[in-house]
Write a protein that binds this DNA or RNA. Structure first.
Lengths: 150, 150
DNA sequence: CTCGAATTGACAGCACGCTAACAAATCGTC
DNA sequence: GACGATTTGTTAGCGTGCTGTCAATTCGAG
């Protein structure tokens, strides 16, 4: 019989620590390319197809308002362009500019390098297993924590 | 042969999502007791023994400055007391007041209840396995991300 | 004992998450 | 077509993480 309460606390603290570690890594990769971790994430969300603020927010699991501020900053920096949305006059579609794409490309090699180091550290089998474990835990938490309606 | 880069991104995004979920839960538990997730964490850190700001920060993996602000707020609210430190005149030790302990006690039943729900959702064996996976990943990331000197 | 290095607390300011509240646009039902 | 409900963008303000910088204190090498 385990102490579930103790286990929960320990898992939460570990997740908080991992969040900090991944954020540190992302920041370290993004900053040399003239981005931040957050801007990289937003820019990355519209690489495949243009999306609205609200769509990006839903996919990233954060609020529309947070996306908006970041998107505006990226637009000010000329990395993100607003294009008209045929199906909604007010909700413009966001897509990277050439400058934005260049920033993403600049990150790519360093990103791959760190991924390689993690794979070396963990081994391929373990990396897959741990990734699956994260997904499993997320799924369980999703069931217990209903999403906000907004 | 897996795509390590893709895997890394996916793991990072899942950790970010888990961070948000655990934070939402913690906030939901803490607020009814007159705390926030952060204040609960700081108060929880000095339950066993009084610690200085810097010691709390190291254990929580955050900066001294963040702990300081939270500790000051808890002190203003009468939940945290500063007691003299025999081995350092400037670095006072922090410990919960009776009011602080009462807040922690108020959280306890709800905390246990959520832990029970998670155990029910996952099953005991899986809960242990996922917790161990988190710890494993943290250890690997710790090796790749050297701590700041401060 | 002395003096430079390291630790600690304090204060200021920034980044980015959040909620709250509103108007504009769209959707759905009648 | 009309009208209430929903979605979207916008603005404002707060919480809490971070970095930078400084003075006070303690530690450690000589």
């Amino acid at each position: 019989m385990i102490d579930a309460q103790e286990k929960l606390s320990s898992m939460a603290l570990t997740v908080f620590a991992l969040n900090g570690l991944f954020l540190t890594v992302a920041e370290g990769l993004a900053v040399p390319a003239g981005l931040t971790a957050t801007r990289w994430q937003v820019l990355g969300a519209v690489l495949r197809e243009p999306l609205t603020q609200a769509e990006i927010a839903r996919r990233m699991g954060i609020t529309r308002q947070s996306v908006q501020r970041t998107a505006n900053q990226l637009a000010e920096d000329g990395m993100l362009a607003m294009i008209p949305n045929p199906s909604h006059r007010k909700a413009m579609l966001l897509q990277p500019t050439e400058k934005g794409l260049a920033a993403i490309r600049a990150i790519h090699p360093q990103h791959a390098a760190f991924a390689g180091r993690l794979k070396t550290e963990l081994g391929e089998e373990r990396m897959v297993r741990l990734s699956d474990a994260l997904t499993e835990l997320r799924s369980a938490m999703d069931h217990l924590v209903p999403a906000e309606a907004d």
